[in-house]
Design a protein around this nucleic acid. Structure first.
Lengths: 78, 78
DNA sequence: GCCCATTTGTACGTATGTATG
DNA sequence: GCATACATACGTACAAATGGG
């Protein structure tokens, strides 16, 4: 899934996996993506790394975050 | 503000600026100094450099750090 | 309104790898 | 070789917002 020894930073690798799930529709619009804790556990990365990955997707406009609730896939019509 | 090409190490230059702000009262006792992230951005240095600058002030007793909260100016009566 | 769990945000400490002078 | 500097990564802690009971 992700390669800790690869040249690509972990947070970029994690972001890439999530990005693909969004683009394939596995994570549909207006639905929450996995929480930071879930991402931590699934990919075996630290909190900061998971946060950075989600931050990247947010900067790309793919997702939007509601504090205290979660991060959601941004629909095409947003 | 700071000179990346100067002979003085960056972390010392950053520390010097913060030290002056404390001594002039711009950063008053028992008040937080800028966070590591803020220092990074303001001075355009890396995280490690910002950390090292604050570490220097801490060694001098000018500030004290509370993990998870921030770094504060140490009052005269401490 | 209050407590509590969940989730996100922010913050610090530390460590490692790489590059430069 | 060493000090400086940057980027990445892990771990931990405190704060704020949300929602359910």
């Amino acid at each position: 899934m992700i390669d800790p020894d690869g040249p690509e930073p972990l947070y970029r690798q994690v972001a890439a996996v999530l990005r693909e799930r969004i683009e394939t529709g596995e994570l549909p619009p207006n639905r929450p993506i996995p929480s930071i804790l879930h991402i931590q556990q699934e990919f075996g990365v630290a909190r900061g790394t998971a946060l950075k990955a989600v931050e990247l997707l947010r900067d790309e406009g793919l997702v939007h975050t509601v504090k205290g609730r979660g991060t959601y896939v941004t629909g095409p019509a947003q």
